[in-house]
């Protein structure tokens, strides 16, 4: 199956990435090779095989629903590129 540059542009758009002309070209070529390589797995018959999302058998891990101490707002806002001291600051929505 051929990967076209439009495919890469569409995927980049879904991924919220801007790509330069050069990047689109490189990634189109890379993806063609990688996807061809990945297609090998279609040789295997998995008709009656179940999926494994994880390597472990952990399943529906619950804990008590109780109030606990959490990180302070001031501490968390220290890493924000911009804040008004109480909340993250953003340009208004279009």
């Amino acid at each position: 199956m051929e990967i076209r540059r439009e495919d890469i542009e569409h995927i980049a758009d879904l991924s919220m990435l801007n790509l330069s002309e050069e990047e689109i070209e490189t990634y189109t070529k890379n993806m063609q090779e990688i996807v061809e390589f990945a297609n090998q797995i279609n040789e295997l018959d998995t008709e009656n095989t179940l999926v494994s999302a994880f390597a472990s058998d952990a399943y529906n891990v619950f804990r008590k629903d109780e109030v606990r101490e959490s990180l302070s707002r001031d501490l968390l806002l220290k890493n924000a590129p911009s804040s008004n001291g109480e909340a993250y600051a953003l340009p208004s929505m279009e």
Partner: peptide
């Protein structure tokens, strides 16, 4: 990182999810 985000988004996108991601999870079982 961008290359892998693009590959990952591709295999999860509509039309390719079953052929790649779901298939890979089955091969994982094998």
């Amino acid at each position: 990182v961008k290359r892998r985000i693009i590959l990952g988004t591709y295999v999860l996108s509509a039309g390719y999810y079953d052929a790649y991601y779901k298939k890979a999870q089955k091969v994982r079982t094998l």
